[in-house]
Amino acid sequence: MIQQIMEPWRWQSLLAEWPKFASAFVTTLEIAVFALALALALGVVFGLMSTSHNRLIRIIARVYVEFFQNTPLAIQVFFVFYALPYAGVALSQVTIGILCVGTYTGAYMSEAVRAGIGSIPKGQFEAAQSQGFTYIQTMMLIILPQTIKIILPPMVNQMVNLVKNTSIVTMIAGGDLMYRANAFATNGTMSYGPSYLLCGFLYFLLCFPLTTWARRYEDRLKKRDIQTAEQLEKVEEGLA
C-alpha cells in the first residue's frame, strides 16, 4: 500500500483533477455552512424549548432530541432521498445534506444549550423578570450570553462532527468531497491511498481552524476570569 501511495504518477493524475476536487470541496463547504446555520438555529430554539415552563413545549423538544439522537444519520438521509419522493417530495442531494445533517446536529446542540441554560442561577432570571424583560429578551440579552463559556467546548465538538458528517451525502451521490475522492479512486486508477489522503487533508483544513479558534477563545475567557480573580484579591487586600 505504501508503495502505491508513493508512486508519483498517481499523485500527478490526482492533481490533474484538482478542479473537480475544488468544486467538491465547495459543495462540502456549502452543505456544512448551511447545515451549521440550521443546526445552531434549531439548537437554540429547541434548547430554549426544553427549559420552558410549559410541559407540552418541553415534550416536543424532548421528542425531537430523542428521535434524532437515537436513529442513525444514514437512515435519515436514505429516508429523505429514497422514501420521500413517493410522497411527492424530491429534494436535491445538497439540500438533503443540509436538512439532514442540520437537524441531526441541532438535536445535539440543543442538549448543549439546555445544559448551559440550566447552569445559570435562578436569580439571573428573576432579576431580568423584575426589570420587566420579556422571556425572549431575557434569554437573548442576559441568559444565553452567559452560557457561551459553558457551551462553547461541546458546541465546537458538534460543529466539527457536523463538518465530518456532511460526508454522509456520498451515500446518495451528493457530489461532495468524499464522493469525489471515491469517484476518482474507483475510476480505473485504483489510487485509493492518494485520493483519500487528499480528501482527509481537505476535511482537516476545514475542522482544524475551528478547534484552534475555540481553544484560543476558551483560553481568553479563562484569562479574563483569572484577571477578575486578581482584581478581586486587590480589592480584598484594600479592605483588609
Binding site: P121, G123, Q124, E126, Q129, S130, Q131, G132, F133, Q146
Partner: peptide, 28 residues
Amino acid sequence: IIRNSTAMVFQQFNLYPHKTVLQNLTLA
C-alpha cells in the same frame, strides 16, 4: 406593569456578571 412601576433588590444582588457595572445600569 412591572417594567414601569417596580424594581427589586435581591438578597444575592443578581447583577448580570457578563456586563460591566455601567452596562448593568443602562441595559433595562
